[in-house]
């Protein structure tokens, strides 16, 4: 464990806590894409298949349980909670995320480190996570008013993967044969997808204005 990875995990944890806090306290999911949340639940389900068979550390297991629990409960809130679901903007959240799942699965079947079920599912979760934010970014472009909790959520979610890239660089230079191209490329693509969001987020922060993305 290095500082970049710990910071990345904490940033990721904060992003889901910010979102859960928003949904649980103000009982609203305005501006939040259910499709991105469903993709994330699928990412964690596919990535943490070995949560009970492959014990790494208490930290690792606890964090996996938190990410699984939070992503599925956010999906539950947005789908079934009688108050929260009313604030879900379903005719704006129209990104066909099923068109993301299949290509990621096919790509994972083609490009992976080992052709085993667990490894393919793990690789699938990497590719899917790289594009999971797209429905949310599209929704942000559409909904003019981005409340700052949703803005913070997206920012933290992008920042965590950027910190993970620093972690991979650190591990590459400190651990022999630590080479994982698939993880690195998909992590880089994921972070680049946030590039323009980061730009506008920083601009709004610098000019102390409300965050709004150009149409």
């Amino acid at each position: 464990m290095n500082i970049f990875r710990l910071a990345g995990d904490m940033t990721h944890l904060f992003s889901v806590l910010v979102l859960l806090l928003k949904i649980h306290t103000i009982k609203s999911c305005a501006g939040v894409s259910l499709k991105t949340q469903e993709l994330y639940a699928l990412v964690f389900a596919a990535r943490y298949l070995d949560i009970f068979t492959n014990y790494i550390s208490l930290y690792n297991t606890v964090m996996k349980l938190i990410f699984l629990g939070s992503s599925f409960s956010i999906v539950w809130y947005m789908r079934y909670h009688k108050i929260v679901r009313r604030s879900y903007d379903k005719d704006q959240d129209t990104f066909r995320h099923y068109f993301l799942i299949l290509p990621c699965l096919l790509l994972a079947l083609l490009i992976n480190e080992k052709f085993t079920f667990k490894e393919v599912m793990w690789t699938f979760s990497l590719y899917l996570e790289a594009v999971a934010i797209l429905p949310q970014l599209v929704l942000l472009q559409r909904t003019r008013n981005i409340d700052n909790l949703t803005g913070q959520y997206v920012f933290l979610l992008g920042a965590y993967r950027a910190l993970y890239i620093l972690n991979w660089v650190y591990r590459y230079f400190t651990e022999p044969h630590f080479v994982h191209w698939i993880t690195w490329v998909s992590g880089l693509v994921q972070t680049l997808l946030y590039a323009d969001f980061f730009y506008y987020y920083f601009q709004s922060w610098k000019n102390n204005q409300k965050l709004h993305l150009p149409a």
Partner: peptide
């Protein structure tokens, strides 16, 4: 040994 250390990441 085969390095599947990256699996220790979340």
């Amino acid at each position: 040994e085969v390095n599947d250390d990256v699996k220790d990441e979340l």
